[in-house]
Amino acid sequence: MASQGTKRSYEQMETDGERQNATEIRASVGKMIDGIGRFYIQMCTELKLSDYEGRLIQNSLTIERMVLSAFDERRNKYLEEHPSAGKDPKKTGGPIYKRVDRKWMRELVLYDKEEIRRIWRQANNGDDATAGLTHMMIWHSNLNDTTYQRTRALVRTGMDPRMCSLMQGSTLPRRSGAAGAAVKGVGTMVMELIRMIKRGINDRNFWRGENGRKTRSAYERMCNILKGKFQTAAQRAMMDQVRESRNPGNAEIEDLIFLARSALILRGSVAHKSCLPACVYGPAVASGYDFEKEGYSLVGIDPFKLLQNSQVYSLIRPNENPAHKSQLVWMACNSAAFEDLRVLSFIRGTKVSPRGKLSTRGVQIASNENMDAMESSTLELRSRYWAIRTRSGGNTNQQRASAGQISVQPAFSVQRNLPFDKPTIMAAFTGNTEGRTSDMRAEIIRMMEGAKPEEMSFQGRGVFELSDERAANPIVPSFDMSNEGSYFFGDNAEEYDN
């Protein structure tokens, strides 16, 4: 993207840094990872977990959730003011799984939030270390993106479920800051804005008074975040219109849905970061690795190297396929839920299948599930090659597409044709070009129609051997075009429920 120079890199967003050079960025990201790792080690000690239990991804998720809940100030305040039966607002906890007599047992633990905050700050040299908290939120978000298709949420806001490739980060909490905003897809931002506008339509006082002023500035800020994701002048001009509207209503909703559809071809720039579970960072720190000293990046080879040398386990339900569970977590670790499966298959070195073909449910185990038949197995999170994460949407291309997802959002900077089903997408653009945004709409449609099938995206960008740390010898991959490109292809993934 041309304006790259004016933006802070995501590592800076990730670490609240002012302008830093590459070495400083690597050190501050490393410091953040160190903090998460030290916190995780301490929690495993508190909970008396064995090494194996500490490497269980379900335990990692519970521990991450506990610290996120302990620092969720708004919710904590709300819980104190609106006490609900049987919930102690000062405590947080969740299921911890232990191996007892050759069987997995679930144990519900409860801790004072104050105590968890103390352990977290102690692991982070006394700081609140917001960057580390956001990092864990993005890992949870990436896992949700890989596990669930947001059909219901899309339909509720009037969008087409086939636009799911635009929904990265749709389950990120509001408090995820600049680093969170960077990884949100165009569809996620559109959905947040539509929800806001709908509230304004239904509630006369939404934009009024002292609160209304705050609401208005939040609305304009979200519009600017979305505008910054678009790469064409016409899309940005249309966002200006939406932002400046005196009284946002149905016309703005129409414009936003139009823009979301246009992003299936004229893709937005959305950041991709490899955020790993805390149970990967903990053992690495415990083994003596100093992330701050060595430096770390979320968008280069580092996460690949770390996963190459990590042992992570997962509980497996009786009829689940461990290899499929591994694929789910591998995609989440690489922030690749909406990437082209052919690119992923090449990088991973084994075939990556669409969601609907995987015999696996989510990673988390519900409290009512029976533990008797639970097994555990090693997650295979290694890769054959590594590639640089991208934040450009890439230019655009036609490809055989599917009944489910009709476009992709690249996660890796790797040369390819970008699949999208042009006739299906263009069919949504018939007729409606009147109104105050008509010239911009016409211009956007013209650009979409001009998108050429034979153009290559990320020209000359390749993948790298894991021994090639400096990215000196790019390998331009070859793809098996007979395979499906979309992950949520004609899909039956479970729906995400809060």
Rank of each mutant, 00 (worst) to 15 (best):
M1E: 10
M1S: 10
E11A: 13
M13P: 05
T15H: 00
D16H: 05
D16C: 07
E18R: 03
E24L: 00
I25W: 06
S28D: 03
V29P: 09
I33Y: 07
D34C: 04
G37Y: 10
R38P: 01
Y40K: 10
I41G: 00
S50L: 04
D51Q: 00
S60I: 02
S60T: 01
L61F: 06
T62A: 14
I63T: 12
A70T: 14
E73S: 05
Y78P: 12
T92P: 03
K98R: 01
R99K: 14
R102Q: 15
R102T: 01
R106A: 13
L108N: 13
L110A: 07
Y111S: 01
K113N: 13
R121L: 05
Q122N: 06
D127M: 09
A129K: 00
A129Y: 05
L133A: 05
H140Q: 15
L143V: 14
R152N: 08
R152W: 11
V155A: 07
V155E: 04
R156C: 15
R156F: 11
M167A: 01
Q168F: 10
G169C: 06
G169R: 06
T171C: 04
T171A: 13
L172E: 10
G185C: 14
V186S: 14
V186K: 03
V186Q: 00
V190C: 12
M191V: 12
E192Y: 04
E192F: 10
I197K: 09
R199T: 04
D203S: 06
F206Q: 03
G212D: 08
R213L: 03
K214A: 12
A218D: 02
Y219R: 04
C223W: 05
L226P: 07
T232M: 10
A233F: 13
A234W: 04
R236S: 05
R236E: 05
R236A: 12
M238A: 01
M239R: 13
R243W: 12
N247V: 01
P248E: 10
E252H: 11
L259M: 06
S262T: 06
G268L: 12
S269P: 08
K273A: 09
K273G: 07
S274L: 10
G282L: 08
P283T: 00
S297I: 10
V312Y: 07
Y313E: 06
L315V: 14
S326F: 11
Q327S: 15
Q327G: 13
L328D: 07
W330I: 07
A336F: 09
A337M: 06
E339Q: 06
E339F: 06
R342C: 05
S345P: 10
K351N: 09
I365P: 06
M371P: 00
M374L: 05
S377I: 02
S377G: 15
E380F: 08
S383R: 12
S383G: 04
Y385I: 15
I388A: 07
R389W: 14
T396D: 12
Q398A: 15
Q398N: 01
Q398K: 15
Q399R: 15
Q399P: 02
S402P: 14
S402Q: 12
S402V: 03
A403R: 08
Q405T: 05
Q409N: 01
F412M: 15
F412Y: 00
Q415P: 02
R416M: 12
F420Y: 06
P423Q: 05
P423T: 02
T424Y: 02
I425G: 03
T433W: 13
G435A: 14
M440H: 04
R441G: 13
M448A: 14
E449H: 08
G450L: 00
E454T: 03
E455R: 15
A472Y: 12
N473M: 09
N473D: 08
N473A: 12
I475M: 06
I475T: 09
F479W: 00
M481E: 11
F489Q: 10
G490Y: 11
D491W: 03
D491L: 06
N492D: 12
E494W: 11
Y496R: 15
Y496E: 11
